[in-house]
Structure formats: C-alpha cells, structure tokens
Design a protein around this nucleic acid. Structure first.
Lengths: 197, 197
DNA sequence: CCGAAGTGTCTTGATATCAAGAGTCTTGAC
DNA sequence: GTCAAGACTCTTGATATCAAGACACTTCGG
C-alpha cells in the first residue's frame, strides 16, 4: 500500500504555501527554489510528464497522506521499541486505557476500535496476556462473553508509551507554524467525515 | 460521548465553529454550519477525560492522518477491485508506468520505490508475470540483472486504474473548498519534508 | 417450554510478508 | 590474472493476518 519513489526526476511542479497570494505569475526556478520538495512532488512531476491530460491534484493531498502515515508508523515503531512494545500492542492497550476505569472492554469492542478481525484480536489478546499486560475475565451477565482488562503493568506501559508517542509527534508537528496546526486539523477533519458517515 | 466544546480544553482546535464558538467570530467560510465531529474528536475527548495533563494536539493531526490513510486504502482497494486489480499490483505497475518508455525498471529499483523487501518483490513480479502485465528480461550489460517491463496489457490496466483512482479521490477531495486544497497540500508537504530530509 | 435465529469468541487453513541467507555475476585491488 | 568484496536477485523458514466456519450461549417467537 504505498506510492513512494526515490527515483531521479526533475521536480518543479509545486505550489507551496509560501509567498503571497494565489495566481501570482511566478517563474519556477528549478535550481534554488525556496519551497522544499518532497517525494510526492517528484511522483506528480513524473506522472505529469507521462500523462499531462490528467488532473493530478488529488495526488498532492492523498499520496502525501498515505506516505505520511507510513512514516508515522515507522516513527511510532521506533518510539515504542525502546519500551519493547509493538505498535499493535499499543493500539489495543490504548483503547483499553482511554475507556477509563476499570479499563475493561470486550474483544468485540476492541475489534471495532482497532479495525482488525476477530481472529487477529484473539491472537493479540493471547500474546498480551502472555506478557501480563491484560487479563481475560468471564463476563458476569453473559457467559459467552469475555472482558479484557488492563493490568497495572499494562496501565503503566501504555501511559509511558503514550507520553513517548506524543513527544515524538510533537517534535514533527513543530515544523508547522503554531497557527497552522488547528487549520490543518480542521481540513483533515473535513476529509475524514467524508469516510465516517 | 460528545466532544467537550464547552470544556476547559484549549479551544479544541476547531477552526471556528462559526457562532457557537467561544466568541471567535471569524468569518472564514460559511461551510460549517454545525461543526462535524469525527472519530478522532471522540478519541481525543476520551484521552482528555483520562489524562487532562497531556497535550493532545499532535493527535488531532496525526491520528487523522493515520485513519485517513486506512480509509483511503480501503477506498483504493474497492476502486481497483472492479478491474480485478490489487493495490500492491497497482503500486508496482504505476512505478513502471511513470518511469516512462520503455517502462522498464530493475527489481531493485522497484523495491526502493515500493518499500517492500526483495523477497516480496520477487513474489510480486512472479504473479504479475503470471497475469501477463509484466515481463522479465535479462539485463543486457549486467548478467546478474533483470529488467521488468510493462506489457501492453499492463499499460492498459494501469492507465485505467489510475483514472479510476483519481476519480475516487477527486470525489473525496470535493468536500474541500477549492481554495483550501493547495493549502492542505502545502501543510502536508511541510510535514513530509520532516521525514524525508 | 422449545426451537430457530442471533451474538460473541475462538479455531482452522491459506496467504502475503519479512529477515536472513544462498547462488550468480561484476568490480576493484594487488 | 586472480581473488576478495560487493551487488543483484531469488529461496527458505517463520510469523501475523484474514476469511470462513465451529462452538457455546442468549434471545425471541410461537
């Protein structure tokens, strides 16, 4: 699931957020452009060369989102690795953590929140149980049911990991002007509501 | 479980819910009559309840990026499925396509661009060869090497799939005001250069 | 009550992926 | 010229995931 490139491509298809207003008759300087280019600029430039008839605007947004998600995934993996925690482990533990006391959810609820199948969740709960981060309890009122509960060790782990995660992400976010952050969040929300309703 | 717009949180990072906001009467655009909430708003609200001491601003951006990427992946999968094409197949074919004539790359180059391992790429090339979308050719000047080349059938497939993909993505992007799109793309680029530098 | 349908969890079999290493071939130092 | 080191591709073994179905229990209609 990726659209990445490190290929050698002339890159100067760009309309960065800098400078003055839109529509400015700006000469594109290929050598020393102040706007930094990224891989997506190169991918779009390559497509433009091959298919000048296409409207590639969607790529400038969605390819970046996909690639950023991939990089984020790697960054998270690195951050969690220092605590010997895998990303999927954090996903499960954090769902339990933010559920609040007594930090209990059914496997079904965890499936919904983490977007994996029930078989995968069974496997994950098994391994988290083995590490002592969660425990299975029989549901009191439904004997089919199970409640997965965070142990004190799991609570400690997930709180520490969350702090690490926020620290790493805050550093990346630091590249953005403080005023621009809520703006970006708002634009992304507009897109996400497209999918969630 | 609604988001606390009235709570003591730092303005919830909305871009002005137009009227209902805390005095912020910024007439940006009249497109938000009611501020739509998404899953990330709920996740952030849950965390805020549990850990009011944390600065959760990074989540408002990065959790949305991750979740959007997931949704995009599913949308792409659906779009490609109509042509009996898998996402990973498109990733390989599109790398060859935008390389330009004669649509040839080495397996190593494809590995770099798609961020998978060489073993995975071998497997993918095998299957794409089986479907008649690519062919293996011996490299003329390096007898270790192989060149993977798009067949006419592969070219046709990838061009059709690209058109479908852009159509689907354009529809989602339609939720965004036309002026906001380059703005969003620019903000995302600022973040992605953080990772790619 | 009883049986059918529904719900929640776990098991099974198949698949794609990765990490590590093997097999070729090329390059460069001497 | 020769040998060691490197480069490129493919193979192997282990693993996590998914789809589909099995199993246990609950709920609901008659």
């Amino acid at each position: 699931m990726e659209e990445s490139t490190s290929g050698p491509m002339p890159a100067s298809h760009d309309d960065g957020p800098r400078g003055a207003g839109p529509g400015a008759a700006e000469p594109v300087t290929a050598e020393f452009d102040v706007t930094p280019h990224d891989e997506v600029d190169r991918i779009v430039a390559a497509w433009l060369q091959e298919r000048p008839d296409l409207d590639l605007e969607p790529l400038t947004v969605f390819s970046r989102i996909s690639r950023l998600a991939r990089h984020l995934d790697l960054a998270r993996r690195r951050a969690f690795a220092r605590r010997d925690l895998e990303t999927w482990e954090f996903d499960v533990l954090s769902a339990l953590r933010r559920a609040g006391e007594p930090y209990r959810l059914s496997p079904g609820a965890l499936v919904q929140q983490t977007l994996v199948t029930s078989g995968t969740m069974t496997n994950r709960i098994d391994r988290l149980t083995g590490r002592g981060f969660v425990e299975r309890h029989r549901s009191p009122d439904d004997r089919r049911g199970v409640q997965v509960e965070l142990t004190p060790a799991g609570l400690k782990q997930v709180d520490a990991a969350m702090a690490d995660l926020l620290a790493v992400e805050a550093q990346v976010l630091g590249a953005l002007d403080k005023d621009h952050r809520p703006l970006l969040a708002g634009l992304l929300r507009t897109l996400s509501t497209q999918f969630e309703k």
